[in-house]
């Protein structure tokens, strides 16, 4: 199962847990699984079939352009991060 870091502002949904595990072959599947265990997670992270604007996801320390479609391994670590920009 993938290990997901729960952003601090969402821990009201996980009973204060900062890290939880969830199954899935893609980020989207992991989010769906999380949403079952912790209802409301998906609505905070996603806007329809996309990640919320301004949000990025990293899998195993690498930012991914695929977003929710990014494949996830059985031991993967998933983090939701602020999307960045440059000058």
């Amino acid at each position: 199962m993938a290990s997901v870091s729960i952003p601090s502002l969402m821990r009201d949904l996980t009973g204060g847990l900062a890290r939880v595990e969830a199954p899935g072959r893609t980020v989207a599947e992991v989010v769906d699984a999380l949403n079952v265990a912790y209802p409301g997670v998906k609505a905070r992270l996603c806007e329809g079939v996309r990640l919320m604007a301004g949000l990025a996801v990293s899998v195993d320390g690498r930012l991914t352009r695929l977003g929710l479609q990014q494949p996830v391994g059985p031991q993967s670590e998933i983090r939701f991060l602020r999307a960045s920009e440059g000058g």
């Binding site: 952003p7 502002l9 969402m10 609505a43 905070r44 992270l45 919320m52």
Partner: peptide, 13 residues
Amino acid sequence: LHPGLRTRSLAAP
């Protein structure tokens, strides 16, 4: 400024 603007956040809306 924008009467329809809701804060974008991961917190409870």
